[in-house]
Design a protein around this nucleic acid. Structure first.
Length: 596
RNA sequence: GGGCGCGUAGCCUAGCCAGGAUAUGGCGCUAGCCUUCUAAGCUAGAAGCCAGGGGUUCGAAUCCCCUCGCGUCCGCCA
């Protein structure tokens, strides 16, 4: 990123708060230096804080300087003196508090929002941006996506939007598992089972029934079991072009069906990686040969395994072998995944996967193998040395227990979306009966779908969730419709008058106005941090906070009835708020409606 | 049995990585606010041994150790 002043100029271009933070730090550094502090003592406590805009906590620094914390705080305040960027800099006991000059902040923030519009909160990388491959969803193409799986695409797609705003060159990939047994089983079912009630225009819904029935038949009839197993090995060896073609066709159809609810949720993929490719092109065989030659693997009746009892791999557990091939030498899922990831690493600077917590061991093994293949040794001491970065999420369960297609304990995404949109439509009918039907349906779709995305993304990925209809359908309080409603309110004001080009931000002096501006200012630095920390759920909190502050402003500060100068300033604040609400919602993949 | 993750008011949840000043919001509950830019909104109130116990520290929801509870994995399945 270059030298410090260059970085400063870079950040100041995108983040209106940056100059204030830098100035506070520079001032602190200057005074601390004059007091004889070492460089590493300077800034342990300088951060955003509830009691002021920036606060420096003096405890850690005072001791080594031979001062009492409060004494240091007083010296700092005296040494810094007045500063045009800050309204006031004062100490409260051992704390030094910086209060940003609100007029200065309003000016800079509103200027930046007005100028950059939908790019506010987006960063450009300097030079060639790093290439990131983000893999998400990658669900087995056997049937419709259910709610238990829904966390993956929503976390993935939101993360993708954040990384794009951060400026990365992003490729979002869906890894299609077309080598597994399930596809062959389901293809056999489709060819051989008749009389099944499968009316549906969606391949995923149709095929899941053949899949379930074929599984049942396999269990009760050994001859069918054998027949299908034979088919599986023919397919794996690509021994019959006709069979391969059929399986691929079914896979594509199911995949297309599965992605229908994703399209409705505005979840996007840039490319699809087909598992079979890595078997057919020989890369999996190369992986196997190379791993077989390494000191980290062993063989058990011809089956290759990763030896987890090896001192560098010491991963405890009852079973210390993680198998990489079958006895007949054919590959297993994990091994093919390594082939895929080798290609990924070759084509990217950063590879990120979104995975359920059940994949932890496998993901760990893939990373270990990638290290073995790359450098012949393994470092499992920290995730930082992992070639592939993983975002894990905990499962969504139903109140009655785990979601299971087999037991019928499932809520499909399609049903969830249908229900959400239908409930949203009820609300629109109640609240806006005068609107034409077409508009009502449009709003219901936006609101229902938004509510689902929001309720899934708002919770930290690694926390377990229990799916409850009442919560998923929440249209008030901490929910997408709450935020959308604020946006609609802002739009409604702006439909009535156009904000003047020239206005005085200094007229915005009400606490509600100032709090709102401060929150508008935080958006870019938040995107930056959420991108680097991989924490998409924080954007949900932010959007809610912003909407809430806009609603308070809406209550406290009449816009259209205000005196002309003030109206001009407020109209511009509404315009900026609308813009940032829209950008925040867009980051969450949620549509910002003009009315609702 | 072992690995990994989670545990914050009746319910859901932020903060935890980089320890500091009265622990963030929502749902629900109680009491209010629509002749005024959309009340899917706003205001006020009650409600917390931050799972439990030790430790480190001037200071711990946050760091370390132990215990308990929940989830998940430990297939020549994917």
């Amino acid at each position: 990123m270059g030298t410090w002043p260059e970085f400063y100029k870079y950040m100041a271009k995108f983040d209106p708060l940056y100059i204030f933070e830098k100035e506070a730090k520079d001032q602190m550094r200057m005074v601390l230096n004059s007091l004889g502090a070492e460089e590493d003592l300077l800034l342990p406590g300088l951060k955003l804080h509830q009691h002021s805009d920036y606060a420096f906590v003096c405890f850690a620094t005072a001791g080594p300087l031979g001062m009492k914390p409060q004494e240091l705080a007083e010296k700092l305040v005296a040494g810094i003196g007045d500063n045009p960027l800050f309204e006031k800099i004062e100490n409260v006991g051992p704390y030094v508090n910086f209060y940003i000059d609100r007029k200065e902040l309003a000016l800079r923030t509103m200027e930046m929002v007005t100028r950059t519009k939908d790019r506010y909160g987006s960063f450009d990388m300097e030079g060639q941006p790093p290439k990131v491959i983000l893999e998400h969803t990658s669900a087995n193409p056997t049937g419709p996506l259910h709610v238990g799986r829904a966390r993956n695409p929503i976390i993935g797609d939101t993360m993708a939007r954040i990384l794009r705003k951060r400026g990365y060159d992003l490729d979002v990939q869906f890894y299609v598992d077309d080598m597994g047994k399930q596809l062959v089983i389901l293809t056999w079912g489709h060819e051989n089972i008749t009389g099944l009630d499968v009316e549906s225009d969606r391949a995923d819904h149709k095929f899941v029934k053949y899949y379930q029935e074929a599984n049942r038949l396999m269990e009760e009839d050994t001859s069918i079991n054998e027949e299908i197993n034979k088919l599986i090995s023919i397919y794996e060896e690509d021994g019959d072009a006709e069979i391969s073609k059929k399986v691929r066709k079914n896979c594509e159809d199911i995949l297309d069906g599965m992605l229908a609810p994703m399209r409705r949720l505005d979840v996007h993929y840039d490319s699809f990686a087909w598992e079979s490719k890595y078997v057919r092109d020989g890369s999996v065989k190369q992986v196997i040969d190379k791993l077989r030659a390494s000191e980290f693997t062993g063989e058990d009746e011809g089956a290759l395994f990763l030896d987890l009892s090896h001192e560098q791999l010491n991963k405890a557990g009852r079973e210390n072998k993680l198998f990489l091939t079958r006895s007949d030498g054919t590959s297993l899922y994990t091994t093919r995944d390594i082939g895929y990831h080798l290609e990924k690493l070759a084509n990217s600077n950063i590879a990120i996967n979104v995975l359920g917590e059940d994949h932890k061991l496998k993901a760990w093994a893939v990373n270990a193998c990638l290290q073995i293949l790359e450098k012949g040794s393994v470092d499992i001491s920290s995730c930082d040395s992992d070639p592939v970065e993983i975002l894990f999420y905990a499962f969504v369960s139903l109140p009655e227990g785990k979601m299971s297609t087999r037991k019928g304990h499932v809520v499909y995404m399609d049903d969830l979306i249908e229900e959400a949109v239908s409930r949203a439509l009820d609300e629109v009918e109640k609240k806006r009966p005068e609107l034409p039907d077409e508009i009502k349906h449009g709003i219901a779709e936006i609101v229902g779908v938004g509510a689902i995305r929001y309720n899934i993304i708002r919770v930290q990925a690694e926390k377990q969730m229990t799916f409850k209809w009442e919560e998923a359908m929440n249209f008030e309080g901490n929910s997408a419709p709450f935020i959308q409603y604020s946006h609609a309110r802002a739009s409604s004001i702006l439909r009535k008058t156009t904000p003047p080009e020239n206005f005085d931000p200094g007229l915005l002096v009400h606490d509600s106005e100032l709090d709102l501006i401060k929150t508008l200012a935080k958006f870019p630095s938040l995107i930056f941090k959420c991108a680097d920390d991989r924490t998409p759920h924080i954007i949900a909190s932010y959007a809610y906070e912003l909407a809430s502050l806009f609603n308070q402003f809406y209550r406290d500060c009449p816009v259209l009835s205000a005196e002309e100068d003030i109206m001009g300033s407020r109209l511009n604040l509404v315009k900026c708020s609308k813009m940032v609400l829209q950008n925040a919602l867009n980051t969450l993949g949620i549509v910002a409606p003009e009315e609702m």
